[in-house]
Write a protein that binds this DNA or RNA. Structure first.
Lengths: 343, 343
DNA sequence: CTTACTATTCAAAGCGCTTTGGCTTTGCTC
DNA sequence: GAGCAAAGCCAAAGCGCTTTGAATAGTAAG
């Protein structure tokens, strides 16, 4: 069923039918009612491609998911982020154009999405330090919102980030207050901006507390369970093991927990763990009694808010670039406790 | 840069330029070279919307991700499935149209995607028993491939599934051989087809071994860590606790593991665990020594294969419907061992 | 009863690309 | 050199929708 068919069926011109359905004022209400009714009855749905071509708007948002080349790993937070964003897109009639791209392919992917006119805007995922994509997108003139930020980039762009410096500083403060002096940091990949900021926060807090940073306690890798497990084992087996772990995500924290169990240590009593918790739907940090003491910030909510910001940018490209800094909550769970006495 | 601009620039007709770029034979090789070179030089990318409208092909695959209404949970396997599928799509020039839909909205979503001409084909995720979507998609005449199958549906449709009956039967056999008699099944939601089949497999194996099914040991819910944890605690605290757990996914298995630790039990020695492992990139089942004994089947590989099947269906809609049954590997890990002697 | 609007409706021109049908050339054959 | 097929190129007609500019009907004002 096409517009034309529907219009001949109604004895109207395509113009009028189009206007009636799109809510334009220059059409009699009685006519509009007839048209809407007929459209419903014949199950008419405007052809998206045609609409897009005619309006020049793709009504689609591009998400380019970075897949790290090493493990072809896709960060599991994406499904929740997308889930949040989709809620907002749906309300505004946007659809999602998903592309997975290796680290090196990303710029090209963005360029193509734009040149093809496939999307009206883009969410930039996983910004690294000095991320070159930001300047590129700005040059292209394609509206975009960064989920995170990029240290070292001094441009005026739209972003939404968690205050990673503060949240990891607070977490470190908490551990220090509990008497911990040897605190391990199991960070994400250092080139990722969020990881960089978390390290800064951690180091600041240590410095304030007069504790020297021990590089041997600061690790950085893709945030898998296995990474948490192996790193924790290695650190625990050192002559001077850490008494606390600050971990970049709940999945590697589960690995740390497993390592503790392997060594007969109990989280929260023998060794403390704090992790960042993205509040993933399938990996909630326990119920009433959280498994982990954690810096919590819902990535699904971040998705919703990024989506809303992007749609604003698309509708008013010259409006000022929103910059939103969310604070993570510090939730006390079962995984922290006072540092054990030196034996 | 549009086709028309490029063609006047070259002193050719749009027709010829289009043909040159799309590899049609009726264009001189010298001309084609000129055109291709000019396109490259001017960074020409055909407008997707226009192309789609003209060809009637959307060059896009629809993925409708079911979000369970209760927890708005998005199954974490999707990111890996999509990652696999995307590899194949990219090779064939397809893009992904992602929609998240609540359980009730799914049919409507598929209908709209089709009526709008937004996609050329669909991957059907998370089939339930008697899934009504299959008949619907067949009626619509939209090519589709089901990831999984739907018991109770007697139509000829394309699917790719893991042999869930066999894999859970084998897992149960293994536990029985190890001497376990009280085996708990922490299944996914029962309306999901895969969960149904896994239960069947489990029950068949028990029956063959002459062990009565105890309904109290068979649970079913969304596969979260918390579900695994709480269920395991509850079961372990019964007067006649299970000595083994058969778990539908690695995430709830981690919850079971945590429950064991809470109760001072060691996986593999005091209580055995077998789980199904989708081989998620960020949650590998350990390295050389798998954490869990598991029935393993890569969901990323499933994504690749479903994508390939779907593209075949799109290119040859009347070809026979492929039906692929994959066998899961049974990998022995650290989480299983002989049933402890009755005290 | 005109005149001047305003409210409705429509015809037609795109949007950027593909594709059908036709028109020139070119290259052979006899 | 006439005759003919193949090769190479082009004009024009869409694809299904939006939107501009014009036409028509209806209505209030003069």
């Amino acid at each position: 069923m096409t517009l034309k068919e529907l219009s001949t069926l109604l004895g109207l011109s395509p113009t009028t039918v189009s206007r009636a359905l799109n809510g334009y004022p220059e059409v009699r209400e009685a006519t509009r009612a007839r048209v809407v009714e007929a459209a419903r009855k014949h199950n008419y749905r405007p052809n998206m491609q045609a609409k897009r071509l005619a309006t020049g708007r793709a009504m689609a948002i591009g998400h380019v998911i970075p897949a790290t080349s090493r493990h072809e790993m896709v960060n599991p937070i994406f499904s929740d982020f997308l889930s949040g964003a989709s809620e907002i897109y749906a309300e505004h009639g946007f659809s999602v154009n998903l592309t997975l791209a290796r680290a090196g392919d990303q710029e090209r992917t963005y360029r193509e999405l734009h040149a093809q006119g496939a999307v009206d805007g883009i969410i930039l995922h996983g910004p690294t330090m000095n991320d070159p994509r930001i300047a590129m997108l700005q040059d292209l003139g394609l509206p975009f919102v960064v989920h995170g930020r990029a240290s070292g980039i001094d441009l005026d762009y739209a972003w939404l980030d968690v205050n990673n410096v503060r949240s990891f500083a607070r977490a470190t403060d908490l551990l220090v207050d509990l008497g911990h002096r040897r605190i391990a940091l199991l960070n994400g990949l250092e080139q990722m901006d969020f990881a960089h900021r978390r390290r800064i926060g951690h180091e600041q807090a240590l410095q304030r507390a007069g504790i020297a940073c021990d590089p041997a306690l600061m690790l950085s890798d893709e945030m898998t369970e296995d990474y948490g497990y192996r790193s924790a084992l290695a650190l625990l087996d050192r002559p001077d093991p850490p008494t606390a772990f600050l971990v970049a995500a709940i999945i590697p924290a589960l690995g740390v927990q497993r390592a503790l169990h392997d060594r007969g240590l109990r989280p929260g009593r023998d060794v403390s763990i704090i992790c960042h918790d993205d509040d993933l739907s399938y990996l909630r940090n326990g119920g009433d009694l959280p498994i982990f003491t954690a810096t919590t910030s819902s990535v699904r909510e971040a998705g919703r808010r990024c989506a809303a910001l992007l749609i604003e940018q698309i509708n008013a490209p010259d409006s000022p670039k929103p910059q939103v800094l969310l604070e993570a909550a510090l939730t006390i769970g079962q995984s922290t406790g006072p540092a054990p006495r030196r034996s």
